[in-house]
Design a protein around this nucleic acid. Sequence first.
DNA 1: ATGCCCTATGATATAGGA
Length: 266
Amino acid sequence: MRIATWNVNSVTARLDRLLAWLESAQPDVLALQELKCADSAFPTVPVQDLGYEVATLGTGRWNGVAILSRVGLSDVTLGLSGQPQYEGVDEPRAIGATCGGVRVWGVYVPNGREPGHDHYAYKLQWLAALRDTVATELMSAPERPLAIIGDFNVAPTDDDVWDIAVFAGNTHVTEPERQALADLRAIGLTDVMPRALKGNPFTFWDYRNGALHRGWGMRIDLIYANPPFAAAVTDAYIDRDERKGKGASDHAPVVVDLDQAASAER
DNA sequence: ATGCCCTATGATATAGGA
């Protein structure tokens, strides 16, 4: 089974690339982030035409998440339990579904903007709600493969950015953010590392200043897996080629392959 | 070369991204 995550930075602007990528990469499950469209505007028909069921959570201009699956899509959960609001709004940033016996959470963690900003406190609260939501599921079904996949907006270690000195005082690398990821792992999840490409495991490169070609990237799109999921992993990689050229997202897809038998037994 | 911001919005600048 092939599972993937991709921050597409507008699913409507990325539709041609999305459809082409589904055909070339052949994922069984794909979590999308930053749809930037309402549920009613999601391009459901062309995706269904490629054999995928679709569950979306989108409200419009910002955020928005979806799960696409061609191996079943059930027990869809929209949002986190105890999810904090930002400025009185329940933002569409998390969606859970069970696909082919695997529990998948697709997440778009808040950016945080800058340490000290209300959005930064919200980011940490949001990650705590994610931990609590998934911890409950892990306890109720410990043998079921589960992974949180998506744009975590935190670089877990200094090696996950091209130059840690550049990020001094910025979000994505602060100790509280990394502690929030550690707290998430502490409920029984491990970081599935994709194969490094060009020596680095980056998944995001800013659009500006030729960042992709200068290697100015970050690894912020992650796969956090429970033991049954992690034990079934046969490969994981970053599709850096999808970041190239005109009309690319600023994030590359991250793909993980699971042993069919190991995941089907559950 | 892969090549030096992009997206959505009751827009014509602004907010947000990271």
